[in-house]
């Protein structure tokens, strides 16, 4: 149980019933606790008393853990239901129709399961004290650096002499703010698709010189694809990239045209580099 609330019931008459709800694995666990700590005869549960104690205990539950809280609330409802059935006269019904029967069965079964799991835990601990083949890890592999070099120093020196040092070159990196935005490229793509059902990627770059336009247009295309507003099609690597409008009448039926090397060049020209 992963209840985040550690609420305590108000200390009243039943001080020993101070309950941290998060300690319990679930409603059955809590019920058993209430029954066992008070030495209640499980085959004759005082339903009214237990119900009110149960409700007190779960009062602190918050709706934040709906999953866990729901399970406790479900049990509360069951208890209240049983309580109401106990109040009703049961004319002509045989005694074995006790409304508590199913709950008692569940509690006993749960208690038994808990006992069994305790025994399994000790079996697990016993087993973990025995070891079989392969437990002790193998000796670590010899370090790579310990492998003797088969090269002589002369060879290394000779090789070093043949190395030509590269000319130091001045490289300037200019970092500028992004002047081209993805949003404007998205608008550009969508505008183009208003006019026709598809547009070739390179076409969208005509008139723009900087590489950043190509990059942003491509990113905008990916973003719009992610938002399911268009398709991107390319028949094979480096072929022309086609952007397709995505709407109902234009489904996957439209195939991009066969792209040849021509298209390839088109695209290259379209992306100024």
């Amino acid at each position: 149980m992963d209840l985040t609330v550690a609420e305590r019931v108000e200390a009243g008459r039943d001080d020993f019933l101070l309950v941290e709800i998060e300690r319990f694995q679930g409603p059955l666990d809590l019920l058993l606790h209430l029954i066992r700590t008070q030495d209640i005869e499980i085959f004759d549960i005082p339903i009214a008393k237990i119900t009110s104690q149960f409700l007190d205990a779960i009062r602190g539950l918050e709706a934040t853990d709906l999953d866990g809280a729901g399970e406790f609330l479900e049990m509360a409802a069951t208890l209240i239901h049983i309580k109401s059935q106990m109040l009703l006269p049961r004319p002509g019904q045989d005694e074995d129709e006790d409304p508590r029967a199913e709950l008692v069965r569940r509690l006993l079964e749960y208690e038994q399961i808990r006992e069994i799991s305790a025994r399994m835990r000790s079996a697990e601990a016993d087993r973990s004290r025995r070891f079989g083949k392969g437990y002790v890890p193998p000796r670590p592999k010899r370090d790579l650096f310990e492998v003797p070099l088969e090269t002589t120093w002369d060879e290394v020196f000779e090789a070093a002499l043949t190395v030509v040092m590269p000319e130091p070159r001045n490289r300037t990196h200019r970092v500028t703010t992004r002047t081209v935005t993805m949003e404007e490229k998205a608008v550009l793509i969508l505008d183009a698709l208003k006019k026709s059902t598809r547009v070739e990627f390179g076409k969208l770059l005509l008139g723009f010189k900087e590489r950043s336009h190509g990059v942003m247009t491509f990113l905008a295309g990916l973003e719009l694809t992610r938002r399911r507003m268009l398709f991107l099609r390319q028949t094979r690597p480096f072929a022309a990239l086609w952007i397709y409008r995505r709407d109902d009448e234009n489904g996957s039926g439209v195939e991009p045209p066969g792209d040849g090397d021509e298209d390839h060049h088109d695209e290259e020209e379209g992306v100024p580099g």
Binding site: D96, E97, D98, R100, A101, E102, V104, L108, E111, Q112
Partner: peptide, 11 residues
């Protein structure tokens, strides 16, 4: 846990 000594209610 006593499951056998007593008949659970309704069993």
């Amino acid at each position: 846990i006593v499951l056998r000594d007593r008949t659970p209610l309704g069993a």
